[in-house]
């Protein structure tokens, strides 16, 4: 995975609450056995009509948001299924950061595994970034994971919380499995003990 570096990009406003994983990537696109290529179908049912034409009103179809890298969203973004196709599609489109007051648990975890930083902020901070996002390319937003800040064009840094381990992995582009395998001795010891205590498992 690539290292997650500080960047400045366009933020797209999606104030709708409860945007679920079926909206992010409808299930017809889950029939793939690959991880790549899902970006064109991101938000498919909101983005295209049945004939495959773009719906001009949809935010990511508007000229000023076509290259958005940040989404500012309503509560409970990513609720629904565990499908990692949702962050795959977002990442493939070019989204690197999502801001909301809350995320669904599995989706939140999945983001980190795919180079996307989900940022949880209080409502007033989300509202402020939503205002910035409404201004499109005129109001770029800077995300700095190292220092845990996000800031709009008018200055005013907003700090955010992030789990230190997740931050470390994202910043350094680390592979979880490799890291865990370094702890093989602990896993083996646990298995030996569990085999004694709970042999029926």
């Amino acid at each position: 995975m690539e290292k997650y570096e500080k960047f400045t990009g366009i933020a797209a406003p999606m104030p709708l609450v409860n945007i679920d994983t079926d909206m992010i990537i409808p299930k017809v696109f889950l029939k793939t056995i690959k991880r790549s290529g899902l970006g064109v179908n991101l938000f498919d049912e909101m983005r295209y009509d049945r004939q495959g034409n773009e719906i001009p009103d949809f935010v990511l179809n508007k000229p000023q948001y076509r290259d958005a890298q940040i989404l500012v969203t309503g509560d409970n973004f990513g609720c629904g299924s565990s499908r990692e196709h949702a962050p795959w599609a977002l990442a493939d489109f070019g989204i690197k950061c999502i801001v909301s007051t809350s995320f669904a648990d599995i989706f939140y975890n999945n983001c980190f595994k795919n180079g996307i930083l989900p940022i949880v902020l209080p409502q007033e901070d989300v509202d402020k970034l939503m205002d910035d996002a409404e201004r499109g390319a005129n109001a770029q937003v800077t995300v700095d994971l190292e220092n845990q800040t996000i800031s709009g064009p008018d200055g005013g840094e907003i700090s955010f919380e992030v789990d230190s381990f997740k931050k470390h992995c994202l910043l350094n582009g680390l592979d979880d499995i490799g890291l865990t395998m370094e702890k093989k001795a602990s896993i083996d010891a646990f298995e030996a003990k569990a085999a004694q205590e709970r042999p029926w498992v």
């Binding site: 975890n109 999945n110 395998m181």
Partner: peptide, 16 residues
């Protein structure tokens, strides 16, 4: 609980 595909791979490889 449910997990994503990266975690599926993690559990397959490490059982954790």
């Amino acid at each position: 609980h449910g997990i994503g595909t990266s975690e599926v791979e993690h559990v397959l490889a490490t059982q954790t």
